[in-house]
């Protein structure tokens, strides 16, 4: 363990936060969909992948990274809304396993369509020129792009918080996550709210995939491993809890990052060990409500 200086550890924690930021974006969407719609979205990884491939396509047509950052989450969010409207909506009220199976199958369809359109190989994804290089953050040089990922996630979190806490729509979503029936009784068309929530959730997944692409490239199955981790984050944070998703996402990112420093091959396993420990101590996760799944 020679060479494990405090600075190196601090850097690794920071790298973990950047990784965790991507998990947070994924888990927020999943938690929102589960908390409000009781949809366990197995296609969330596919929407993540669509974020990266949407950018590949748009860049191919001469768009730049900044245009992608704005339009891709919007476009994928619209795809998500179409999916909710056409495929998921008929399944509400039929139990949790119907939308689960549907999204499970949908993920395969989306991934295969991308394979047909873009090929099966990994595609490189350049870090935008303005964000290459590293900056001194006091404890050492840290890649600028990773800082950017943390910053974008921060901005999204603040925006989402303001939306939920300060707008009428946010009030409906907060109330609907607790008790959709009373929201209906008070005359609100929850179908419209659910549509918007699905759009937000899938848009966030696309943003996560887009932000991850310069770090790892784009591949049709890039959503598989992140889906598993996002599930862990959602469960550890407490299903349906947004604050839980944020804290657990960052925690899992740091755990992966630190484990890969000492034992890279154990990094993925560490995530599941963390989940097992948390669930043994607190079955509902950090901020989850007990019995939500029953």
């Amino acid at each position: 363990m020679a060479g494990l200086t405090p600075d190196l550890l601090a850097m690794q924690v920071f790298a973990g936060l950047a990784l965790g930021a991507v998990y947070v974006l994924m888990a927020l969407g999943m938690s929102l969909l589960f908390g409000m719609l009781t949809v366990v979205n197995f296609a969330h990884g596919a929407f993540y992948m669509l974020g990266a491939y949407g950018a590949v396509a748009l860049l191919g047509y001469g768009g730049n990274f900044w245009v992608c950052l704005f339009f891709i989450p919007l476009a994928v969010g619209l795809v998500g809304m179409a999916v909710e409207r056409v495929l998921i909506r008929p399944l509400y009220g039929r139990g949790i396993d119907y939308p689960l199976l549907l999204t499970f199958g949908l993920a395969y369809v989306i991934v295969e369509l991308v394979r047909i359109g873009f090929g099966t190989e990994d595609l490189p994804f350049d870090t935008p020129a303005a964000l290459t290089g590293a900056v001194n953050i006091g404890i050492g040089y840290f890649p600028l792009y990773r800082l950017f990922v943390i910053a974008v996630t921060g901005v999204v979190l603040v925006g989402l918080w303001l939306f939920l806490e300060r707008t009428s729509y946010g009030l409906i979503i907060r109330a609907g996550a607790r008790d959709p029936q009373i929201v209906r009784i008070l005359g609100i068309d929850v179908g419209r709210v659910w549509l918007v929530v699905f759009g937000i959730g899938t848009g966030l997944a696309a943003l996560a995939g887009l932000l991850a692409a310069p770090l790892q490239g784009a591949s049709p199955d890039m959503g598989d491993s992140i889906l598993a981790i996002a599930f862990v984050v959602t469960v550890v944070g407490g299903m349906g809890s947004l604050l839980g998703a944020v804290l657990a996402g960052l925690l899992v990112g740091v755990v992966v990052s630190l484990t890969s420093l000492v034992a890279p091959e154990a990094a993925q396993v560490a995530v599941f060990v963390l989940m097992a420990v948390v669930l043994l101590v607190r079955p509902q996760g950090f901020f989850g409500r007990a019995g939500l799944m029953s």
Partner: peptide, 30 residues
């Protein structure tokens, strides 16, 4: 509801985590 039906269910269903004001606002949003 839009036609003028209001319903107060037996369990009251006050939304946890919301203030009195936000519960009232919720009733007004529709």
């Amino acid at each position: 509801h839009a036609r003028g039906l209001g319903y107060v269910p037996e369990e009251r269903r006050i939304v946890q985590g919301l203030s009195v004001r936000d519960n009232l606002r919720l009733g007004l949003l529709a």
